[in-house]
Design a protein around this nucleic acid. Structure first.
Lengths: 363, 363
DNA sequence: TATTTTTTTGCAAACGTTTTCAATAAAAAT
DNA sequence: ATTTTTATTGAAAACGTTTGCAAAAAAATA
């Protein structure tokens, strides 16, 4: 670590004869004493659903305000709800997840919940992550971009902790999921590329085995086959990043008969592929090679890319996830076993500049 | 919300005569009973620093394992540490913050702490955010890309909650900070652009008033002045995003004598500016217009941008922040009042393709 | 072996809330 | 005015841990 450190000798305030003056934490009992009411009254005054007269509430709030009382949510959490939602994230490469995190945290906050963010990856398996959030007594769990082993969904169910899988689906696992119609998205891409008259197609995946990629590929290929396109291939970049897209595309274009209609499983890969096409092979994007991505991240609209892509309705997906999660929390509280819901939202193609116009006839 | 919902009627397991079979949560007392020891013994067995014989620990762990016991961190938190760190984030536009969040969460997890992520913005003022994390009894607080009102630092200090400001500094506020040497970064940019022979300079800021931007601008301009450059101007994009950079640059290039050496306060703005320069005005980047950004985000290395930029040492900055925060937590625990440290780390210029070679002489 | 020191253990009291239950007060109905 | 119903309150028992204190056990010393 290079750089310099400026150390200020002592704080401006709160020092008195070398000892620290700490403000003792004010609790519910101090408030009760000052207000001249019982401890339970104070508790009720702070809980909207509890039975408490307006007069009482006013008296308590006055005392609380005077003392600067703030409830201890940990203590509350050991009897009542923690108001904590665990959010499990694996993919920190795709900038879409910053947008998604923004929306999750905001939406949860609006509804009085807060986010315990867990980074699952090296040093933290999904198993450990689930155990961890359970130790924190979360009221619910959101799993993004990965899938939960069946054993873990069972554990959550037994503890009555609802789980929603975001942007993945898992057929054999009894758990609610929210994702977009990836198959339809793949079909749109195929149709658009065919309409533009491209003839040799390629699907470029990222991490192998992701349900999203499998669906997008399936949709893409099935539509190609339906429309009698004989020439297509499927390759995998390995990772969900720019370099993987770049490298996979380089490989494609050193073949004897390179493709001319490329569909990438996400925008980042598409950026890599596009840059390989134009800068490494000197081909004209759209005119000679059509490119479609998936996600519609912010940078897809940048002039440097101007990427035609299948847009995922992230905002509605997040909203649906939060709504569903809170609904399941309520149901568990009312001793109803929530049904499993697999919510699939429509995606749509955003036309930009990386695919030539439909109706193009090659000579 | 458009799309379809598939509802599965009932879960595969855990249903029995229309009622839910819940696994009662196993607590420390069940473990104690099974192991035939006291409750406190179990507690100590789970706390590494507590005095507990190996034999006892083994016995307890066996019983705990058999019952599937997991400690309740909320209950623990009301007497001991919560192991929760509040992370306040305002900027969800800049993809750098996804990287930063990745590193913060990972680093904290490695050290046994976990992240309470708060989205401060509309609906959640910084004031509310601080109050909120205090209600959750966080052991420490990290504030990214914004500055804390002095009143709030005092509150945290009184409650013995250490705070580190990340990527900002505040002179008049007694709080530890970690950032890079933004002034030096600005000077590097000036030197490099001058060396390449550009002559009319512009600094393009984002949100007004950010300490980082002020420093970068100050460093840039002061070096221009030192090297006797008479022509420079300062403009502000308003936001920290692509469109602001694009728009600000368009304005610059509709002046009678547009600049030819551009320094943007971050990479996203620079992307916007660069795209304006080449696609809107048809100028050649580097050859005709030099562009330098700040941050060195992933996309700066993409071939489509290949942006020369001042690199912030995010990894070391995060590490320094976490180290310092945990050190202050220990100090508070040992009744030492932590000193205020302002850690400033070196940044460096990453040479890419948006500035022509040094030594260029214009005709 | 007898004594001192150190380590390990259990008991019981916190920690700051919520919640059940019964009692009281207020309102509504007779 | 009396009874019934409903809303509000307080006392005390949870909730699942940690921790101070003292007793007991083990280890070290004489």
């Amino acid at each position: 670590m290079r750089g310099k450190v400026v150390s200020l000798l002592s704080r401006l305030c709160c020092i008195k004869d070398q000892t620290i003056t700490t403000l003792k934490k004010v609790t519910i009992v101090e408030v009760a004493e000052l207000a001249g009411v019982s401890v339970s009254a104070v508790s009720r005054a702070f809980n909207p659903q509890a039975s408490c007269s307006d007069k009482m509430r006013a008296k308590v709030m006055a005392a609380a305000g005077q003392l600067g009382y703030k409830p201890n949510r940990l203590a509350r959490g050991i009897r009542a709800q923690s108001k904590l939602i665990g959010i499990l994230v694996t993919d920190f490469e795709n900038p879409a997840y910053l947008t998604i995190l923004n929306q999750f945290t905001r939406s949860l906050q609006e509804k009085g919940y807060h986010s315990l963010l867990i980074n699952v990856g090296e040093g933290m398996s999904i198993h450990e992550a689930v155990e961890l959030v359970m130790e924190y007594q979360v009221d619910g769990l959101i799993v993004t971009s990965s899938v939960l082993p069946q054993q873990l969904t069972r554990v959550c169910q037994q503890q009555q902790i609802p789980v929603i899988i975001f942007a993945r689906h898992s057929q054999h696992n009894p758990v609610s999921t929210v994702c977009c119609n990836n198959i339809a998205g793949g079909r749109m891409a195929a149709e658009r590329l065919i309409a533009a008259g491209y003839q040799r197609f390629a699907f470029i995946g990222g991490v192998e085995g992701a349900s999203t990629t499998i669906d997008r590929q399936r949709g893409f290929i099935s539509r190609l086959v339906e429309l009698q396109q004989p020439q297509w291939q499927v390759v995998s970049g390995g990772q969900h990043d720019y370099d993987s897209g770049f490298a996979a595309t380089c490989k494609l274009f050193t073949q004897p008969e390179p493709p001319d209609g490329l569909f990438f499983t996400n925008d980042i890969l598409a950026f890599g592929g596009m840059d390989a096409v134009r800068y490494e092979f000197g081909l004209r994007v759209a005119a000679e090679v059509g490119i479609i991505g998936f996600d519609d991240i912010t940078a897809a609209a940048h002039r440097a890319y101007d990427l035609t892509t299948v847009s995922q309705p992230f905002t509605t997906m997040v909203e649906a996830t939060v709504d569903r999660l809170l609904a399941e929390i309520r149901q568990y509280r009312d001793d109803i076993l929530p049904a499993i819901e697999q919510i699939v939202l429509d995606c749509h193609l955003v036309e930009r500049g990386t695919v030539r116009e439909a109706g193009y006839r090659c000579t």
